[in-house]
Design a protein around this nucleic acid. Structure first.
Lengths: 131, 131
DNA sequence: GCATAAGTGCGAAGGCCTTCGTAGATGGGT
DNA sequence: ACCCATCTACGAAGGCCTTCGCACTTATGC
């Protein structure tokens, strides 16, 4: 048995909002991240900085200190994070039934016809694999 | 415009775990809820009591005090709560795209063939309405 | 070179969540 | 009537999250 590596912790609410910015912009300075985030909500510069430092400690992102303005990049992937959050919600609120979850999601937030078609296609692939 | 009635707050992690018990058991005493919850994790009796009191204040449940042992019942419905949680996650992590959410959910937590069929059926209904 | 702007690090306040101990009230059995 | 088990109420501790002010450092422009 090798050493157990700590799984990436689940991002908190505000950490996730920073991750979303990072996913959108790619590696960025605090300044850039702050500016981008400020477009959707008011937030202090040092708040963003502090959060990024915490996220770096937790392994959610990494930073390049070679320049004076450090450059942060996400370590947590978007898909990985989404699946992590979904898995958690699945356990907490849907007794692990992804069918229930999917049906509630579709019922609550109707998707467009095109999107429904894409989902159907995925469904087909899954059924085939499942056969 | 009538008076704005406060929307039901989103249940916290542990509130949700109590709601799940209430949904399963129906109206119950603290004792019964505690016993049931104890089957899955260790928790103090007064912890459950306190949480139920808080939930009552928040409007997540209501209690009948006509007997000495108060009887609690959920006010937040299961479907309603699930949709609320999904909606929140949708905003926070999926940029509001239910398609992305559904596809990640299906990819991450494969459902059985039967379940996939049920989902497909729902999809058909939605497509029809969407036409 | 010096003032100013921009950047990082530190620490701490305040809020919410979770948990539970303890006190006091109430009912049941003998 | 009394004792014990059961119940509710209250408060508070501790943890994590979020936010930011302040001090210090480092580049930039005149």
């Amino acid at each position: 048995m090798g050493p157990m590596k700590a799984p990436r912790p689940q991002p908190t609410r505000s950490e996730l909002s920073l991750l979303r910015v990072l996913w959108r912009l790619g590696p960025s300075t605090v300044r850039a991240i702050h500016d981008e985030l400020s477009r959707e909500r008011e937030v202090g510069y040092t708040t963003v900085l502090k959060l990024l430092q915490i996220m770096t400690e937790k392994g959610l992102c990494a930073r390049d200190e070679s320049r004076r303005s450090h450059v942060y990049r996400a370590l947590a992937g978007e898909d990985e994070t989404q699946r992590q959050l979904l898995g958690d919600l699945l356990d907490r609120a849907f007794e692990g039934s992804s069918k229930k979850l999917v049906m509630q999601a579709l019922a609550a937030q109707p998707a467009s016809k095109e999107e429904l078609a894409e989902i159907r296609q995925l469904l087909d692939e899954l059924s085939r694999g499942e056969k």
